[in-house]
């Protein structure tokens, strides 16, 4: 008994199918636009920073901007050298890294190679939670707890200083470095470790000679991204390091970072379009470029460590 019935789609079937397909196409367009919001945001950031900075740079030469040693845009005799702000940022970042890299790495190695499964599973969520603490709270710690403590150790330490801020920022990014570093080390395949153990190496030797080198790109990515976060950190320095732009690399002095300067100006009353207003965009542009460099390096390193295994 053969099917002699024609199986052409009936009218209703075909028009419903057309409706479904058109709906699908329309929805795809909407979804694409949502995806493009991310692109639009980046474009807008670049556009605004460059646009406002262009006004700034019509008043200030790039040479002065990069080489002048004082940053006093709001004074009657304004100077526009970005170096004080950059020096502040770099000093704070350096102090932070002195804390975060060793401590973060040791914790990462310990968790990955030595800790029991239970300990690791308990500590990792805590590390994740620590990453979620608002930075303004860390700023409070820096100003009102760490600085007084340091003042006992270092007599004459001013109330605002880069050391407190740097140490707290370092502590703040330890969980991040530890977490990403530990992930990188866990990604090293078991057979590499087994090769080392089979030759009679201890856990420490295996960790230092096999795992850490094997996880190198992941660890480097963790450090680089930690640097990026330290550079972009605002509240801790705004609260604890002071807002006096000073060209110095001495952490026991107060100074302003790029981010703190932007906060300082925003707290005040600046007319839209004034050079003071534009100066924060110029500063922001420098900040953006610095973090971009590190983010890009970190991105390629992350990709390399993911691809390696």
């Amino acid at each position: 008994m053969s099917q002699a019935t024609s199986r052409q789609p009936q009218g209703g079937f075909a028009s419903r199918l057309r409706y479904r397909k058109n709906r699908d196409r329309a929805i795809e367009l909407v979804l694409l636009m949502a995806g493009l919001v991310a692109v639009f945001t980046t474009v807008a950031i670049v556009a605004i920073l460059v646009y406002e900075s262009s006004f700034f740079f019509s008043h200030v030469s790039i040479g002065d901007f990069l080489t002048d040693t004082m940053w006093t845009p709001l004074f009657s005799d304004p100077r526009y050298g970005i170096m004080p702000l950059v020096s502040g940022t770099l000093t704070v970042t350096f102090v932070a890294l002195l804390v975060a890299i060793p401590l973060g790495t040791i914790i990462a190695i310990y968790l990955s190679e030595f800790a029991t499964h239970r300990l690791r599973e308990t500590v990792k969520p805590i590390l994740e939670l620590l990453g979620a603490v608002p930075t303004v709270v860390y700023g409070y710690f820096a100003l009102l707890m760490v600085t007084p403590f340091l003042q006992k150790l270092i007599p004459g330490l001013p109330g605002f200083n880069m050391l407190s801020a740097g140490l707290v920022i370092g502590l703040m990014i330890v969980p991040y470095v530890a977490s990403v570093g530990e992930d990188a080390m866990r990604a090293v395949p078991r057979y590499m470790r087994e090769g080392s153990y089979a030759m009679g190496a201890t856990r420490l030797q295996t960790a230092l000679r096999v795992v850490v080198p094997g996880a190198f790109s992941g660890l480097a990515a963790a450090y680089i991204l930690g640097i990026s976060r330290a550079i972009g950190e605002t509240m801790v320095v705004a609260i604890a390091a002071g807002m006096q732009p000073t060209l110095t690399f001495n952490p026991t002095e107060p100074a302003a970072t790029i981010t703190a300067y932007i906060v300082q100006v925003s707290l005040g009353d600046l007319p839209h379009g004034s050079i003071g207003y534009q100066s924060i965009f110029a500063a922001g542009l420098v900040l953006m470029l610095m973090t971009l460099v590190f983010n890009v390096i970190g991105f390629f390193l992350t990709r390399r460590f993911r691809e390696a295994y």
């Binding site: 991310a38 692109v39 945001t41 980046t42 950031i45 605004i48 920073l49 991204l225 990026s228 550079i231 972009g232 950190e233 605002t234 981010t259 932007i262 906060v263 925003s266 924060i280 965009f281 922001g284 900040l287 953006m288 973090t291 971009l292 983010n295 970190g298 991105f299």
Partner: peptide
């Protein structure tokens, strides 16, 4: 862009 935006300092979003 999505990856990059995750690493932009929050103050730049303010700007």
């Amino acid at each position: 862009n999505v990856t990059n935006l995750a690493g932009v300092p929050s103050i730049v979003y303010g700007l």
